[in-house]
Design a protein around this nucleic acid. Sequence first.
DNA 1: ATAAGCACGC
DNA 2: GACGTACGTGCTTATA
Length: 504
Amino acid sequence: MKWYGIELKGEIFDTMLAHYLIEPEGRRNMDELSAQYLQYEPIHIEELIGKKGKNQGNMRDVEVQKMREYSAEDADITLQLKHKFVPLLKEKELEKVFNEVENPLVQVLTEMEYEGVKIDMAFLKDYSVQLDMEAKAAEQRVFDCCGIRFNLASPKQLGEVLFERLQLDPKARKTKTGQYATGEDVLVKLANQHEVANDILIYRELTKLKSTYVDALPSMINPKTGRVHTCYSQAVAVTGRLSSINPNLQNIPIRTEKGKEIRKAFVPRDTNHVLISADYSQIELRIVAAISGDKNMCDAFKQNKDIHTATAAKVYGVAENAVTKEMRYKAKSVNFGIIYGQGAFGLADNLSISREEAKQIIENYKKEFAGITKYMNDTKNFARENGYVKTLMGRKRWLRDISSSNFTVRSFAERNAINSPIQGSAADMIKLAMIKIHVAMQKEKLKSRMILQVHDELVFDVLKDEVETLKPLIVENMKTALPLPNGVPVEAEAGVGINWLEAH
DNA sequence: ATAAGCACGC
DNA sequence: GACGTACGTGCTTATA
């Protein structure tokens, strides 16, 4: 666990983590941290170990080992920092989340990173060739259409071709730097009018897949283990989620057909193993229901209803069997917007409906789900009075802008106030589940391993003989890791397959 | 090196 | 009346 995660008296006390919980908006590196709390001269350990430049491999045990070479002095600093942080964690009421969630999770993550995941390199190499051909074809069609060759990967050049040479939109939107905007939303609108936009979108999708995933992943395979070893950060995302880098395995494509192919390259270690993927169902909305206590939403979950259909029925005032696809789709978007604190304008834009219709939908929603509105107001008031909001496990997010006189700045803080307890409590829950599952797997002496976490999903590399034991163990622990208030049930499902796509 | 624009996930 | 959906990582281009 990085260099500062040195074992002390049989436990791991991560000083960075402790500091992060205390001041999540004041992230620092260890040099500054020790200097600040201990009034030491910063020791610039990263230069000492030559961590500048590419950080290949990324296995915590390798890092820890490198660190141990310098550990006499460092351990002393870490121990002193521990003495500084223990009373601070108590004073700020963060002992629970630190002792029950973050600290025990360190070991789980260390083993997941060490374990890594097997990648089917041959599959990706073949796929790379295919994507390259298709991308080149799309690129050629764009050039033919525009009557000029240019660098299609350059948004600047593309904007000039589309809006100056071809004059596709006289009132084309510009970015804050004065370039023409050529993002997906712009191109989709343009696609009705000119087929070139479609080919650009195809080109963008294919080159994204190729450069970020299909070509990158094989190059990240550790030569010693033959697997990729991501690095999870516990002290980066302000809400308490994990983040993943080198490679980021939390943003592997799934939405499009060509994208989800990439998941076929994530495979078990050998033919005696399979992958199990287990994920929470609608976890963030369940948490909204539970912490707001809204009667209608809690009831919908208790009765195991499809939440978007139930929402649509309430908002449109019809029976659930009279809910159309259109109505469900709009209700789904409203639910999504609730989680992020979206207003009527955003909803209208998102659904391409009139602001009048959006306003009506939101009014109905507020009436039918009065508890949600109350939660939002209560949360904003709590944040204004206390300067922070907190999750079910007591994780805090400080919101220094919550009383800003600047509308934009304050609104942003208010959306954070609403969203953070939801996203953060979901993070608490899956982290607790990971710890419980890890402990149970150790106790049963299972040979299978937890290998990935993607916010509401866990992936395991599983010995075939252990599938029947492990599957219920995973699901049961996920469901019970953090019981929700107001009797809102938690649901989790698991799938088995010979690759990640099949298991999911 | 760093910023901008874009696109992938939940 | 403003603003205009939360949290991340990483690619390529363009500029310094």
